[in-house]
Simulated assay, not measured.
Amino acid sequence: MTSFQLRVATADHAATLAQVMERTFRATFGESTAEDHMAEHCRNSYREAIQRAEVVDPDITTLLCTDGKSIAGFAQVRSGKRPACVPGSRAVELHRIYVDAPWHGKGVATLLMDAALDDATKRGADGVWLGVWENNPRALRFYAKFGFVEVGEHIFHVGSDAQRDLLMYRAL
């Protein structure tokens, strides 16, 4: 059985993290998104410089789950403005949580979710919210398992392709 380690990402992880982020996003949404939209989104979201800036941003915690050599998955928790439909006055966002394909089904997502919820609690949050594509049943089931419930919706752009995300919330 693989032993996983959790850690907070540093600027030294930016290049590898950018690659893993793009690979996992493409694996999750590549079949349902036109390549030009996908390429635009990846260019605007997952370059090394962008990840370095996010990793050092005090309002973002980037959590890594590794197998000792490779990043198996990651999660990002961030403070900031919340949509009006999100309850709680101090809710934080679970901005991203992805597991790379070789580690699917090995408990990585659960480790990351537990760590993200712990990070939110340490920040003094009273809840956690997230956006999830309405056509991602696997993710919807996963979030429901952790007590997230639908509270609204918003538009998420993949490149210039507008897609409907469900907004989900869990009180802490």
Rank of each mutant, 00 (worst) to 15 (best):
A49D: 15
D119R: 07
G80W: 10
S45E: 07
Q19E: 15
E150A: 14
F146K: 10
Y169V: 06
I71F: 03
Y169D: 03
D100Q: 12
H41A: 05
A34W: 09
P58L: 12
M113P: 05
R26Q: 11
A144W: 06
E93L: 11
E40V: 05
H154A: 10
F29T: 05
A101Y: 05
C42E: 01
T24E: 09
L166K: 15
H154W: 05
G80F: 08
A116F: 09
L117A: 05
F25V: 08
P137M: 10
L64E: 03
E22T: 09
G68F: 03
K106P: 01
V158Y: 11
R47T: 06
G88Y: 07
L64T: 01
L112W: 02
D100I: 06
R90E: 11
T62L: 04
R23I: 02
P83M: 11
E153K: 13
G68S: 04
G68K: 04
S79G: 13
R123M: 08
W133S: 00
E22W: 07
A171H: 12
T121V: 13
D57W: 04
N44V: 05
L140N: 05
V149L: 11
A125Y: 08
F156W: 12
A84S: 15
V149H: 13
G73A: 04
F29W: 15
H13C: 01
T121Y: 05
E150G: 10
L112E: 02
P58K: 11
R23F: 01
R43A: 14
L172Q: 14
H157K: 14
H41L: 00
Q5I: 04
T61G: 03
V55M: 04
Q19V: 01
D118G: 09
T24P: 06
G159Y: 01
I60S: 11
D12Q: 10
L130D: 02
V55I: 15
Q5E: 13
W129L: 07
P58W: 11
A84H: 14
P102R: 03
I50L: 12
D119H: 00
G68P: 01
A162W: 06
F148A: 08
E35M: 09
L130R: 07
R164I: 14
Q51P: 02
V158Q: 10
A101S: 14
A101E: 15
G30P: 10
W103D: 05
P83C: 13
F146C: 06
F148I: 06
R47K: 09
A34G: 09
N136C: 06
M168L: 15
G107W: 03
K106R: 15
T121S: 11
M21K: 03
E54M: 11
C42N: 08
A11Y: 01
Q19N: 09
Q51W: 04
F142Y: 11
M21Y: 00
H37Q: 10
K106T: 14
M21H: 06
I71M: 04
A9I: 04
G80Y: 10
G68D: 03
D118L: 08
H104M: 08
K122I: 01
A53H: 07
G152I: 11
A139K: 12
R164P: 08
F74E: 00
V56M: 07
C65M: 02
G124I: 03
A49Y: 03
E54N: 13
